[in-house]
Design a protein around this nucleic acid. Structure first.
Ligand SMILES: [Mn+2]
Ligand SMILES: [Mn+2]
Ligand SMILES: [Mn+2]
Ligand SMILES: [Mn+2]
Lengths: 220, 220
DNA sequence: AGATTTATTTTGACTAATCAAAATCACGAT
DNA sequence: ATCGTGATTTTGATTAGTCAAAATAAATCT
């Protein structure tokens, strides 16, 4: 069995490669895992030996098919657990990521399957993040964001791509939840300012970086 | 935070001292944790330094108030998780101990509280084991067993004190579940044989050791 | 008491995961 | 072609947890 350290390394590689095949830079992995770069080098070499990754020295690292399989299973556990915590235990949207970070390593595949059934086989977690299927299929649809979408058009929020409690709290405070409808009324690239409006609400000002974390799609 | 290794050491000390104040022999702990005795000695010394236990060299080890507090919290998590797995996820009675062994270290106190509420504040787990209260109170009532109870009297099964899948499977196969009624029809100390009968069932033969794992109380 | 058995402790070694700091490499800019 | 910068790797050390096997202490048995 992979240790939870190994599971975290593989999961973060998957997230950092955006589901694709790109090489993940060692520094980015170190940042994501909150360890120093030298630690990542050591660990990645071990993971290469065990066949979970391919290491291109001085360039980066990429998951093998086997590494990807493990990573997808962990990610599936993480996101299904988040669903359970929010939908069944009614926990705070902004707090569940931290909880799931531990639980993803503690639940068996048997429990995973039963949780999935209990929840009615959801396709996304509470933040709109897609849940990998049991067979390891991960939706990789590309969405517009409040930083890139068309202006003055009603759009449906599909996903918030920042798991930090601070950002999620900000999002929920301003009703920026998956399923809600918003409209960007103004966007100034120079000043980096985006103004969004919910149907009947007052306008809300966002920075470009923050706006880029909110994924949207055409309504209906 | 205590590592899961530390949590396991403390939990098993609690279980081996039967809730009381007795010294737990190092060998018994080693056996329970499936490590060699030398490992226990080393670990117990560290736990003494951190104030979780009192170590009497060459005699054994005992929990301090703080160690007991931690142990009770872990035990509470273990048993509430078992309730969840059986009552909500409908998992196999005999399989949940293994699952809970991991989950007990991964769930936060917040999740614990919500699980407790979801389950309706149960007092025992699916095997009849008492669940420590949030305040750290653990029921220590002493029960008779099929090896010690009066003969020819209808008794209610309250608890099965063996978490192994093999024994639990045997128990469920023969309808020896908490809540069920049985009667010991015969007991021969010399041969070590106990014969029990469920209300309308055929007689069942048990060894004394096995009979001692089934706790009973007077009906109603 | 002296010898034997058994439990416990000690010692030395190993693995997994980590950090700090020095060394190395690759790349673009002079 | 050399330089400087930033990313990566290497080196040496640390911590938690473990085992094998030798040493020691306590209890038990002549
Ligand atoms: Mn994790
Ligand atoms: Mn999520
Ligand atoms: Mn455990
Ligand atoms: Mn139990």
């Amino acid at each position: 069995m992979a240790t939870s350290t190994v599971e975290n390394y593989l999961k973060h590689m998957l997230l950092l490669s955006e589901g694709g095949e790109e090489l993940v830079p060692m520094g980015a992995l170190a940042e994501a895992l909150a360890v120093v770069p030298g630690t990542v080098t050591t660990m990645v070499k071990a993971l290469a030996d065990s066949g979970h990754v391919e290491h291109r020295p001085r360039q980066g690292v990429r998951l093998t098919a086997e590494g990807r399989r493990v990573a997808l299973n962990v990610l599936r556990k993480h996101r299904l657990v988040e669903c359970f915590l929010v939908n069944v235990l009614k926990m705070d949207w902004a707090a569940v990521d931290t909880e799931a970070e531990q639980l993803e390593h503690a639940i068996s595949d048997e429990v995973l399957d039963r949780l999935d059934a209990l929840l009615g086989h959801p396709e996304t977690d509470p933040h709109g993040d897609p849940i990998p299927s049991r067979q390891g299929k991960l939706d990789s649809q590309v969405y517009a964001t409040l930083a890139t979408c068309v202006v003055e058009k009603a759009l449906r929020i599909v996903r918030i791509t920042d798991q930090s409690a601070e950002f999620l709290q900000f999002a929920v405070q301003n009703g920026l939840l998956p399923g809600e409808t918003v409209r960007v009324t103004e966007r100034n690239l120079a000043s980096g300012l985006v103004t969004a409006k919910k149907n009947a609400g007052r306008p809300l000002a966002l920075g470009l970086a923050a706006a880029g974390k909110i994924l949207v799609q055409p309504t209906r």
